[in-house]
């Protein structure tokens, strides 16, 4: 095995396990322990790891970078089910838009089997998850100014670049729905973005877990009849189900029995 290849292997083991000891690395790569020690020294000079007695530990900064993209633990199952249903509406050869939010991050995890799909998003986290879980999808990020806490893009540049597209399907993560104020989201930028993209999409879906129904968020997107399809989960309140059905709006409630 070439030394460069060996270094790659050691890096991979360390990224996965965060730490490694010299004897097991030697056994794994089929070289002497002295060779491993020399390799580790090289990698320490690259500041990839810190050598310790009998082994090495992965350096923290690289680790911290990943945590920004980590998902909050709560309600994962609900979002997963919503993502699964939403992924059914992505056809091969589609151009789709995924709005910022956690629901979108779960949709891109279900797209491995799609062919020739182009994804446009303003959320860096969605883009990250897409390349991590569904590398077959080609991702296009819009320009714009970056919000450092949510990693979302917004602004005039975003609007300009979005206007170059026409979307087959768009998915929007909605933060609150009431009968009176309709759909609302947490920031004015996001509301403006959704209104804009909704107009240039063939089909739009509102994604909203049941506990956001009956709640209001700060910026209004549009009234309750704005979207023709809503994806939520099974515990949605009866009054909403009844209203939507009478208004001829599709309601997907993600049962997963």
């Amino acid at each position: 095995m070439l030394p460069i290849k060996r270094l790659e292997e050691i890096k991979q083991v360390l990224t996965e396990k965060k730490q490694a000891d010299v004897p097991s690395l030697a056994q794994l790569l089929d070289v002497t322990e002295a060779t491993i020690r020399r390799d580790l020294e090289k990698l320490e000079n690259e500041q990839f790891l810190t050598r310790t007695h009998g082994g090495a530990v992965l350096n923290e900064p690289a680790h911290a970078n990943i945590s920004l993209f980590q998902l909050p633990e709560e309600h994962n199952e609900i979002f997963q089910n919503i993502g699964q249903i939403a992924a059914q509406f992505v056809q091969n050869n589609d151009v789709i838009f995924l709005g910022p939010g956690i629901s979108s991050r779960f949709i891109v995890r279900q797209l491995q089997n799609k062919i020739n799909v182009t994804l446009i998003t303003t959320d860096l986290m969605v883009a990250h998850d897409c390349s991590a879980y569904s590398p077959n999808i080609s991702v296009i990020l819009t320009g714009g100014s970056l919000n450092p806490t949510t990693l979302e893009l917004s602004g005039q540049m975003t609007t300009n670049s979005l206007n170059n597209f026409y979307f087959n399907t768009s998915f929007f993560d909605i933060d609150g729905i009431t009968f009176n104020r309709g759909y609302s989201v947490s920031s004015l930028n996001k509301a403006f973005l959704i209104q804009n993209v909704n107009q240039i999409s063939q089909k739009s879906f509102a994604l909203c877990p049941y506990n956001r129904f009956g709640r209001e968020s700060s910026a209004v997107v549009g009234d309750i009849n704005l979207f023709q399809s809503v994806i939520t989960n099974e515990h949605l309140e009866d009054s909403f189900k009844e209203y939507y059905f009478q208004q001829k709006i599709q309601v997907f409630a993600t049962f997963n029995v």
Binding site: Q88, K241, F252, F255, N256, V257
Partner: peptide, 18 residues
């Protein structure tokens, strides 16, 4: 059936075929 139950049944169909 009332409307909310109907919607639940339709969505259970979806779950079954998935």
């Amino acid at each position: 059936l009332d409307i909310p139950s109907k919607i639940d049944i339709y969505n259970l169909f979806n779950d079954l075929i998935m």
